[in-house]
Structures are given as structure tokens and as C-alpha cells.
Design a protein around this nucleic acid. Structure first.
Lengths: 192, 192
DNA sequence: CGTCTATTTGAATGTACTCAAAAGCGGTGG
DNA sequence: CCACCGCTTTTGAGTACATTCAAATAGACG
């Protein structure tokens, strides 16, 4: 639980009693590579904190093409906010890209936490704000930059994630075809 | 204050005393068309609720080209979350597209509200979550759909905003040139 | 009326996609 | 240890999507 405790300590201060109460609501789970935490159409019954491994959160369009919303590695949170908060069928899939380990919390436990510890409201308010800021930045990048620049930005912004991904996955995240990504990479190599 | 009261009532329940306490932290302001609520480089000292009018939130890239992050009309909130929460220089501009009216709250008043009314934490947590969901959906649309489909989606999703905007502004929101938007519109008209 | 801005149009160019095929790479079983 | 399989990556040709630039047209407003 150390990693989780350090993660929340970045945002709020809790007494040791509160920390225990918080951590007690979480459960450990191992997830094998290629296993799903969530499939489209299911209701998302958890929010999870990644201890080890790597996940992709994605959507399949009508043609069956995969579009990746984000990745998550150690010390990141994942879930389908929309499906979790409204308990409606998910439009997103969450799949492990490596053998992974998570702590997860269920809907009722999270609601109980909100009731018992007002600081948890603050914690998730702050995390939500940071998520918004990151999404806004990516949105602006996406409408204002060409694919080659977005690729380089991704490599430099997430140096710990990028090496663990295939180009197929990076292309699905950037919103370009993997063939075109390959051509971008060739151009970059030639320049150096 | 009626519009604001109804807006927050969608998310949380407050006693009439709490509502007054909440509303007392907000100040009224008129903003003329083409006036700025925030300019790049300034520190964002407010979060605002739009009572009347229309705003654009945008970023100018290195070439001076405008990229619109979002619009806001009556019953919407605006601000630069990043600049406001960290009190650092803004990368975004906020400009009125019509003569408008807002209620705004300052940083200290908002922090005091968080202290005094825990439900306000919940309020902004929920609003942040909804914002995230909307941004995620737009992000997926952007990496998975062609420009013509994104344009039609925008018109149908925001029927109350789109008619008040120029095609120049819509193009800057969709991330395409206004000439190309014009050609998309021609194609759509021909089909009918 | 004149001015300023928005919109449309066309030609030329550049960016990105599709499809098909080949090459590389890692793991697994014989 | 090698042969084979599945998956990733690269490559090229042809096509579609989107931009740039320049110019003409249309609207809005003082």
C-alpha cells in the first residue's frame, strides 16, 4: 500500500487513522497480460490504482478499429469515470498490456469514503482537475499540431511509457495509421 | 442568482442558508463583446458562471493561429483551471463573442468556501468529472472521426451554440481550416 | 455609401490513409 | 537447435483528405 499512500499524499494530508480507513477500502488484484479489466457494454464497478504493469484504455469504433484514450502504468489511476459514476454500460475497454497488479475500490466503498472522509472529496476533486488540465492540453495539441510533432511530444512527455508500447499502440493513441507512424519514424531517423 | 442556484442544484443539495453563503462569494460583471476575461500570460484570478452571452476559450500557437478549446454560453462555467489553481501565467485567452454577463468568484473566496462548505468540494468534484467525460469523448471523436463527421456532431450536440458562431470560430474549434469547412458545408448541402 | 469581416471558390500542394507485400523478430514445439 | 508461426514494422503505389494561397463574392455595420 506504500505506493498508494505516497500517491494520495501528493494531493492531501491525512492522519494515519484516516490513511488506514482509506486503504482498507481497496482490494488487491493481479491481472495477466491481455486480460480485461473492463469490456465495452459492461458496467464499470471499480476505480483502480496501478501498482505494477501497464494498461490501455480504448474504444472500438463501428469498423472495429481501436482508438486509445490513454495508457496507465505504476502510480496511475484508471477506470471509466462515466460508466462508474452513472453505473451505465461502458463504451471503453481496459486491457492489460503486461502482467500487472492493481488496488481497486468498488462503488459503494467509494461513496462511503466520501461520506466518512470529506478530504477524499478534495482528493478526487484535485485529481479530476489535473485530469482535465491534461486532457485540455492534449486536445489543443491534437487540433493544432501535425502528427510528427505529436509523436515527438508523446515520446518526450511519457519517456517511461513509450518504450513499453508497440508502434501500433502509439499510432492508435495519436490517431494515425501505424504505416504512417512508421514513415514519420523513418523521417526522424534520417534527420539525425 | 436564480440561474446559478438552479445550476448547482443539479449536482448537490444545499440548505437555503448554505445557498446564500455560496452565492455571496460571487460578484456580478458585465463584459462587452470583444472584451477579454483573460489574456495569455496573465494569472487567472477567477472562475466564472455565464448568465448571458457567449465566450470562447482559446490558445494562440507560435504562428499566431487561434485554436479554440471550448465555447461557453448561459448556464456554463468558464476559467483556466490550470492558471487558477496554480496561480501561474495562463496559456489560454478568454474573450466575449457577445455582450455578456457573468458571476465570478476569486481564489480566496473559493478556498474559503471549500473550508466552510464541504459540499462545495463535492460540487466541483462532480463538475470536474463531467468535464473529464466530455473531454474524453471529444478526444476520441477527434482521433477517430473525419472532419465532416466532427462538424455534423458539433451542430447536433450544441444546437444552441452553433448558430451563434461564425464558421471561422467553428473551424478553429474543430481543428480545420475555414476554407475546408466551407467545402464540407457545400458537400452537405448538395447531398440534400 | 464605404469598410471590414465572413464566406466561397479554385488550383496547386502537402499530409495522411488504404491496400498489398515483404522483412524482421520472438516465442514455441518438434 | 532449427523451423515455423504469429505479430510488428517497414515499404511503395495509388488515393483521399486537408491546407495554403489568391481572388471573388456576400453580409454586417457605422
Amino acid at each position: 500500500m506504500e505506493l498508494l499512500k505516497r500517491n494520495i499524499a501528493k494531493h492531501i494530508q491525512l492522519s494515519s487513522g484516516e490513511i488506514e480507513q482509506f486503504c482498507n477500502c481497496f482490494h488487491f488484484k493481479e491481472v495477466r497480460k491481455k486480460d480485461f479489466l473492463l469490456k465495452e457494454g459492461e458496467i464499470c464497478r471499480f476505480e483502480a490504482f496501478v501498482i505494477k504493469g501497464c494498461f490501455k484504455v480504448y474504444h472500438l469504433d463501428m469498423k472495429g478499429v481501436e482508438h486509445i484514450l490513454n495508457f496507465a502504468i505504476e502510480d496511475w489511476w484508471i477506470g471509466d469515470i462515466e460508466s462508474f459514476t452513472t453505473q451505465t454500460p461502458a463504451r471503453l475497454c481496459i486491457e492489460a498490456l503486461e502482467d500487472s497488479e492493481i488496488y481497486f475500490i468498488g462503488k459503494k466503498d467509494k461513496e462511503a469514503l466520501y461520506e466518512q472522509l470529506p478530504k477524499v472529496e478534495k482528493l478526487f476533486r484535485i485529481m479530476g482537475q489535473k485530469n482535465c488540465v491534461a486532457l485540455q492540453r492534449r486536445m489543443l495539441d491534437n487540433i493544432s499540431k501535425a502528427a510528427d510533432e505529436r509523436y515527438i511530444d508523446f515520446l518526450t512527455r511519457y519517456p517511461e511509457i513509450a518504450p513499453r508500447l508497440t508502434n501500433l499502440q502509439i499510432a492508435a493513441y495519436l490517431g494515425i495509421s501505424h504505416e504512417f507512424l512508421s514513415k514519420i519514424r523513418r523521417k526522424i531517423v534520417k534527420k539525425k
